Computed example of a mutant assay.
Amino acid sequence: MTTTALRPRTPTRTRRDWWIPASLLALTFVPAAAGAARLVDLSSGRTAENARFFDLPLPILVHIFGATTFCLLGAFQFMPSFRRRRPGWHRWSGRILVPAGLAGALSGMWMAAFGDLPVYDNTALMWFRLLFGSIMVVGLVLGLVAIRRRDVRTHQRWMARAYAVAQGAGTQALVLGPMVFFVGQPSGTLKASGMAFAWVLNLVVAEWLVRRSQARQPRRRV
């Protein structure tokens, strides 16, 4: 056996793994920047343009901080080599991720149900927000229940589904952005369809990735 064959492969694998959190952080950038802009907007005082946000200031703040924390920290949960090297960090950050995710999802559903309907939205989009918000809440709860039973595979699947929904805003920017450029601001059914498509796309990709990853690993419990 050669010396090259005996060299550890972990650093190479770790470098390859970095594309996962890097991609997810890039996807988080647009909604995170929009959230920061919204906070600046709210701090500048009430105007005709931001009046509806002043009617629900607490849910907006909870949603921005909860969803941003969940997406940023969650990006590193999908890096296999990082989880293996720092299992304590994975468990510790999970204690922050679940409350942050629930706060982001429930506050978003509250705004969808009780806030004024934005000018470019319609009732269908409101129901889509409630539907996918519910999927995120269910995913977080069932993921937590699964890990308390030490069922790692089920935990991974439900947490991946919840994270896929949370990252919907980033994918929606990619889907709706070209529409804004070519046909102007989408509204009504077109906007609702584009946003629903982004959520479904994220869920399909997450389901495929997590099942593909699990197929390569032996079934285990912790």
Score class of each variant (00 low, 15 high):
residue 5 A to W: 01
residue 6 L to P: 13
residue 9 R to F: 10
residue 9 R to C: 08
residue 13 R to A: 07
residue 15 R to I: 12
residue 16 R to V: 13
residue 16 R to W: 14
residue 17 D to S: 07
residue 17 D to H: 15
residue 20 I to L: 15
residue 22 A to C: 10
residue 22 A to V: 12
residue 23 S to N: 11
residue 23 S to C: 12
residue 26 A to S: 09
residue 26 A to T: 12
residue 26 A to D: 08
residue 27 L to S: 04
residue 29 F to S: 13
residue 30 V to R: 06
residue 32 A to R: 01
residue 33 A to F: 07
residue 34 A to V: 09
residue 35 G to W: 03
residue 36 A to C: 06
residue 37 A to H: 00
residue 38 R to N: 03
residue 41 D to V: 00
residue 41 D to I: 02
residue 42 L to T: 04
residue 44 S to M: 05
residue 45 G to F: 03
residue 45 G to T: 03
residue 45 G to A: 06
residue 46 R to L: 12
residue 47 T to Q: 00
residue 48 A to C: 04
residue 49 E to K: 00
residue 50 N to Q: 02
residue 54 F to W: 09
residue 54 F to Y: 04
residue 56 L to P: 03
residue 56 L to F: 08
residue 56 L to D: 02
residue 56 L to G: 01
residue 63 H to W: 09
residue 65 F to R: 00
residue 65 F to K: 01
residue 67 A to D: 12
residue 68 T to N: 05
residue 69 T to P: 02
residue 71 C to G: 08
residue 71 C to V: 15
residue 71 C to Q: 14
residue 72 L to N: 11
residue 78 F to C: 02
residue 78 F to W: 04
residue 79 M to T: 12
residue 80 P to T: 09
residue 82 F to S: 01
residue 83 R to W: 07
residue 89 W to K: 08
residue 90 H to Q: 14
residue 92 W to P: 01
residue 92 W to R: 12
residue 94 G to D: 10
residue 94 G to I: 09
residue 95 R to K: 14
residue 96 I to D: 02
residue 96 I to A: 12
residue 99 P to H: 08
residue 99 P to N: 06
residue 101 G to L: 04
residue 101 G to W: 06
residue 104 G to C: 06
residue 104 G to I: 11
residue 104 G to L: 10
residue 109 M to L: 01
residue 111 M to W: 01
residue 112 A to Y: 00
residue 113 A to V: 07
residue 115 G to R: 04
residue 116 D to S: 09
residue 116 D to K: 08
residue 116 D to I: 05
residue 117 L to F: 04
residue 117 L to A: 03
residue 118 P to R: 02
residue 118 P to C: 11
residue 122 N to P: 02
residue 126 M to W: 01
residue 126 M to Q: 08
residue 131 L to A: 15
residue 136 M to C: 13
residue 137 V to N: 05
residue 137 V to K: 01
residue 138 V to Y: 10
residue 139 G to P: 02
residue 140 L to E: 00
residue 140 L to R: 00
residue 141 V to L: 03
residue 142 L to T: 10
residue 146 A to S: 09
residue 146 A to H: 11
residue 147 I to W: 02
residue 148 R to D: 04
residue 151 D to F: 01
residue 152 V to D: 07
residue 154 T to P: 02
residue 155 H to K: 04
residue 155 H to G: 03
residue 158 W to Q: 00
residue 161 R to W: 07
residue 163 Y to D: 08
residue 164 A to T: 08
residue 165 V to R: 07
residue 169 A to C: 06
residue 173 A to N: 07
residue 174 L to M: 11
residue 176 L to F: 03
residue 178 P to T: 09
residue 178 P to Q: 11
residue 180 V to C: 03
residue 185 Q to D: 11
residue 185 Q to L: 15
residue 194 G to R: 14
residue 196 A to C: 10
residue 196 A to L: 10
residue 199 W to M: 14
residue 204 V to I: 14
residue 206 A to W: 08
residue 207 E to S: 10
residue 207 E to H: 12
residue 213 S to K: 13
residue 213 S to M: 14
residue 214 Q to L: 15
residue 216 R to A: 15
residue 217 Q to Y: 08
residue 219 R to W: 13
residue 220 R to F: 12
residue 220 R to N: 09
residue 220 R to G: 01
